[in-house]
Write a protein that binds this DNA or RNA. Structure first.
Length: 290
DNA sequence: AGCCAGGAGAATG
DNA sequence: CATTCTCATGGC
């Protein structure tokens, strides 16, 4: 089955940047597992095609629901041109948006996002990817694709909650192992409704998330932005802190609280996209400056 | 080889 | 409330 999506979309930045960790370059496009579906994505001129490679026995989706599911994941229900033109009113951001182009924010699964960004604590993108891959291989369900080709779904909350700290440590996550275990157990044992969290007040959701072990301000904002439809969230990590300071505050050190207020004042409900451009631009500068 | 990494949490001034 | 320390591992 093939789903065609009509959108300007930088797939490399969306799938291989710092927002999701399950995709790999493959044959001119990218391959990744999303909610039990093994997807192959390729970009053509003004559309890209999403091909469903597996029988989707884990997705519990009917054939005609897969298209909607994929479109939700790629967040086609938004106007990227409108977002960019709004951001370009900022004279500092305008040339960056111009250069980086069509960054898009995916709509990921909240639980996958929680695990991924707990793994991200004091880490780096290549390592997060290997950590997440190890966790899926050990605790996810097998998705047989072809001979000698096995993919793995993202493990359920229960699968992680019922594992152990030692097992998680053996996947290279180090001191994050107890965070992952305790948060999974809390989510298993209490009633968390991620759907409701998409409509609730962002501050409330943020503080609820921060009650979970291993979720602080930065990780909570990533979960809000990447999986809970709170596109005004502005995750502040080292890169963003550094980049904002450099571009807007003459290199002065600014407290996170001030950066948050500054961001919302300046970018409003598009703060999440602003953050995304600033993050990618900061990393690009580091790469090109050696 | 040694520095650094999409931080959080606990312990201190 | 602000600063400082530790946490485990691997990428570059």
């Amino acid at each position: 089955m093939i789903v065609e999506i009509n959108a300007d979309f930088d797939l490399r930045l969306a799938l291989m940047g710092g927002q999701t960790f399950r995709w790999q370059p493959q044959g001119g496009g990218y391959r990744g597992v999303v909610g039990g579906l093994l997807l192959q994505v390729e970009h053509f001129r003004d559309v890209f095609e999403v091909q469903v490679l597996n029988a989707s026995h884990l997705s519990h989706l009917a054939e005609d629901e897969i298209g909607q599911y994929v479109e939700k994941y790629f967040r086609v229900d938004e106007d990227p041109e409108g977002v960019r033109s709004a951001l370009c009113k900022d004279p500092v951001l305008a040339p960056i948006v111009q250069e980086l182009g069509g960054i898009r924010i995916l709509r990921q699964d909240p639980w996958e996002c929680i695990v991924s960004y707990i793994c991200s604590i004091d880490s780096n993108i290549p390592k997060i990817r290997t950590n997440v891959a190890s966790i899926c291989r050990a605790l996810g369900e097998e998705i047989p694709v072809a001979a000698e080709w096995m993919e793995y779904s993202f493990p359920t909350i229960r699968a992680v909650a019922d594992s152990s700290e030692d097992l998680l440590r053996s996947m290279g996550v180090g001191f994050r192992a107890p965070y992952l275990l305790k948060t999974a157990q809390e989510l298993r044992d209490s009633k968390w409704n991620f759907m409701d969290m998409k409509n609730e007040n962002a501050a409330k959701v943020r503080s609820d998330l921060q009650s979970l072990p291993g979720i602080g301000p930065k990780v909570a904002d990533c979960i809000l932005l990447y999986s809970l439809d709170h596109l005004d969230a502005f995750p502040i990590d080292r890169w963003v802190r550094r980049t904002v300071s450099q571009l807007y505050f003459k290199g002065e050190e600014i407290r996170d609280k001030e950066i948050k207020e500054w961001a919302f004042t300046r970018f409003g409900f598009h703060s999440g996209y602003a953050q995304q451009y600033l993050f990618e631009w900061g990393r690009l500068q580091k790469i090109t400056s050696g």
